[in-house]
Simulated assay, not measured.
Amino acid sequence: MSDAAVTRAVRLAVAGEPPRLVEKVELPAPGDGELLVDLDYAGVNPIDTYAATGMVGDLARLPRTLGVEGTGVLAGTDTRVVVTGAGTGLVRDGTWAGAVVAPRGAVVELPAGVDPAEAGAIGVAAVTAYDALHVLGGLRTGDQVLVLGAGGGVGVLAVQLAKLAGASVVGQVGSPAKADAVAALGADRVVVADAARLVAELDEFQPTLVIDPLGGAFTPAAVELAAVSGRIVILGVSAGENVPLPGRTFYRKGLSLLGYAGLVVTRERRATAIQAVAAGLAAGTLRIPVDEVVPLGRFEDAIRRLRDRSVFGKVVLATQE
């Protein structure tokens, strides 16, 4: 559809009203520093569900196509790229569409051999996992890593990336249904535990690095478990925004609590992470478990699955269906 002036797209028109699939959305002509990308897959992320309700994103820029990550080919070529960042889906049209005009800074070329559906899920969770481990967490060989929410979009990559770096990895999941799948990704041990049971389940494990996308009562549990001089990277609060930190334990252990802010990651950092993860996907040393590929016309089903936490890994929209 490289010559098309219109595309199907999931659009938010008015804050507070549900987004809708619009069959014909006019595409602007690419300006200086912009590229037309014919999209085929787009990831579904928690931030997309927030954008769909108007909780995040620039409400002065409506109507707007949703979707903060996706993949496709540069129009008129076979060059596969990832589109993410630079306000994609939040301040300008996003990836839940058949095509998008994106700024050059939001487009990263991929190597050959990356599965397109997996490529659609690289831009957010994979970048988060890579940055949380390597940039903020200072991951090194011999680290003992605890990945909370190991069955989620970030967790499934964090487990694999930590193992590839020579760390010992324990994954936490909230459902027995996800335990075997996380173990198959390479985790040395998987525990099924809520926040109240986490310390008891892992009383002899002292992580030097904790990846925490959950917050709530999980973060203080991580403080209790962490080794002296350990690092805790918090990148989400899906289990609760308020984090009651045990201050005395925290300072006596000399711990570091680091926050990951994906919306302010630089273009260069994002590209480095995407290229590193994509190289692993192409080589077969990494994989992104895609739980379900959902046609664009059923985007509400994808949002529902994310909200009810039934997803292992990622849900991806097929934007040409």
Results as ranks from 00 to 15, higher is better:
residue 160 Q to D: 09
residue 235 L to Y: 12
residue 158 A to F: 02
residue 186 G to H: 14
residue 191 V to F: 08
residue 172 Q to T: 15
residue 211 I to Y: 04
residue 176 P to F: 11
residue 156 V to Y: 04
residue 263 L to H: 02
residue 181 A to E: 10
residue 214 L to N: 13
residue 247 G to C: 07
residue 260 Y to H: 01
residue 195 A to E: 05
residue 214 L to E: 10
residue 228 V to N: 05
residue 181 A to H: 09
residue 270 R to I: 06
residue 212 D to G: 02
residue 177 A to M: 13
residue 209 L to Y: 00
residue 199 V to H: 09
residue 196 A to K: 01
residue 181 A to S: 10
residue 142 G to W: 13
residue 256 S to Y: 11
residue 186 G to L: 10
residue 274 I to C: 13
residue 268 E to G: 13
residue 209 L to T: 00
residue 185 L to N: 01
residue 181 A to Y: 05
residue 243 V to I: 15
residue 201 E to C: 01
residue 269 R to S: 14
residue 233 V to P: 00
residue 221 A to T: 02
residue 150 A to N: 01
residue 253 K to S: 07
residue 162 A to K: 10
residue 182 V to F: 12
residue 237 V to H: 04
residue 212 D to E: 04
residue 174 G to I: 07
residue 253 K to D: 09
residue 148 L to K: 08
residue 200 A to Y: 01
residue 219 T to P: 08
residue 155 G to P: 04
residue 239 A to I: 11
residue 168 S to D: 12
residue 201 E to K: 00
residue 188 D to M: 09
residue 142 G to K: 14
residue 263 L to W: 01
residue 176 P to G: 11
residue 194 D to R: 07
residue 242 N to R: 15
residue 191 V to R: 08
residue 156 V to L: 11
residue 222 A to F: 05
residue 238 S to T: 12
residue 248 R to M: 12
residue 179 A to V: 08
residue 170 V to K: 00
residue 182 V to Y: 11
residue 256 S to Q: 13
residue 233 V to T: 03
residue 197 R to S: 00
residue 200 A to S: 04
residue 235 L to N: 08
residue 209 L to E: 02
residue 178 K to N: 10
residue 208 T to V: 04
residue 213 P to A: 10
residue 228 V to T: 04
residue 278 A to G: 12
residue 184 A to E: 15
residue 153 G to H: 09
residue 231 R to I: 05
residue 233 V to S: 00
residue 268 E to P: 09
residue 210 V to T: 07
residue 157 L to Y: 02
residue 260 Y to A: 00
residue 149 G to A: 10
residue 282 A to E: 15
residue 196 A to I: 01
residue 277 V to S: 03
residue 242 N to E: 14
residue 143 D to I: 14
residue 148 L to I: 14
residue 194 D to N: 09
residue 239 A to N: 13
residue 177 A to R: 15
residue 192 V to F: 06
residue 274 I to E: 14
residue 185 L to M: 05
residue 244 P to G: 13
residue 271 A to D: 09
residue 150 A to F: 00
residue 197 R to W: 00
residue 149 G to Q: 06
residue 198 L to S: 01
residue 149 G to R: 03
residue 255 L to F: 06
residue 184 A to W: 11
residue 249 T to R: 15
residue 228 V to D: 05
residue 234 I to Q: 13
residue 168 S to M: 10
residue 180 D to A: 15
residue 177 A to P: 12
residue 143 D to G: 15
residue 271 A to Q: 07
residue 275 Q to A: 03
residue 266 T to Y: 13
